[in-house]
């Protein structure tokens, strides 16, 4: 089965749906029509652009170019994690904690998948590397943003209890332990839910794409299983690291709670 090509005409039918939604939003005073249209235009431009970039990338398979694209993806994901924080860390830490955690989790897990699981030659073959990394970044990003946001918000709200423990001589690690645990749990819930619903409620994006492109459904299912597990591992690893790093940053050398490090 060949993939049926989509014409601009086909896409504009889909775009009519978005326009209808914007009209409803305007009529009902929801106030989101502006944001909806901007997000739509952004997604169109970004996806066309990445289509062009990937086309060039696949044609050349230049390791340096591939490296640059992965770093760009990483920094965009790091920025997204930061932008979703209501009380983010000041300075470089604001973007640094999320970016570093995602670098460690997503990159290492993508490498593991390419080397050990898929065993593609060479390992940086962009047709495998870029989509895999993109899926890992996109999903761990969500978990990490929720976990970090939860950590800083809870530390802010429960500052009195944290300081009460400190005044009683608890060390910083014990004083923030329950908040850190809650934050990590909140960050892991989405991927656990996604795994639970996979195949029953939703056909995940990667599997859908492979089936549309003509792969046998069993092969598509196996790839999707691998991806879900990689995402779960990556989210767990990344969120654990980010929450640990973030909670450490909330205290200074003298183990004082330093909420002034948040904005």
């Amino acid at each position: 089965m060949e993939l049926i090509q989509l014409s601009p005409w086909d896409l504009s039918i889909a775009a009519l749906l978005v326009l209808a939604l914007a009209a409803i939003s305007w009529r009902l005073h929801l106030g989101i029509e502006g944001r909806l249209l901007i997000a739509t235009v952004r997604s169109v431009l970004q996806l066309m652009l990445i289509g062009l970039v990937l086309k060039a990338l696949f044609a050349q398979s230049n390791p340096l170019l591939i490296g640059a694209v992965t770093l760009f993806m990483l920094s965009m994901a790091g920025y997204e994690v930061m932008a979703r924080q209501q009380r983010r860390f000041k300075g470089l830490w604001g973007m640094g904690i999320g970016t570093l955690s995602m670098f460690i989790s997503s990159f290492s897990i993508t490498l593991l998948a390419l080397h050990v699981v898929v065993q593609v030659e060479p390992w940086y073959t962009p047709q495998y590397l870029i989509p895999l990394l993109g899926m890992l970044l996109g999903n761990t990003m969500t978990g990490m943003a929720i976990a970090l946001d939860n950590l800083t918000q809870q530390a802010w709200q429960r500052r009195g209890a944290i300081e009460a423990k400190l005044t009683l001589g608890w060390n910083w690690d014990n004083a923030i332990r329950d908040i850190r645990r809650d934050a990590l749990r909140a960050g892991l819930i989405p991927i656990i839910n996604a795994m639970g619903a996979a195949g029953v409620v939703s056909l995940p994006g990667m599997m859908t794409g492979q089936i549309l492109a003509g792969s046998p459904p069993m092969d598509a299912a196996k790839y999707q299983i691998m991806i879900l597990m990689l995402i779960a591992g990556g989210t767990g690893l990344g969120a654990t690291f980010a929450v640990w790093l973030g909670s450490r940053r909330l205290f200074d050398k003298r183990e004082r709670l330093r909420l002034d490090r948040l904005r």
Binding site: G160, E163, L166, T167, L168, G169, W172, K253, R254, E255
Partner: peptide
């Protein structure tokens, strides 16, 4: 360390 100091010097805050 901070927590060693605070276990020796106990603060009772107003609240």
């Amino acid at each position: 360390r901070g927590h060693e100091w605070r276990s020796r010097v106990g603060l009772l805050p107003a609240e």
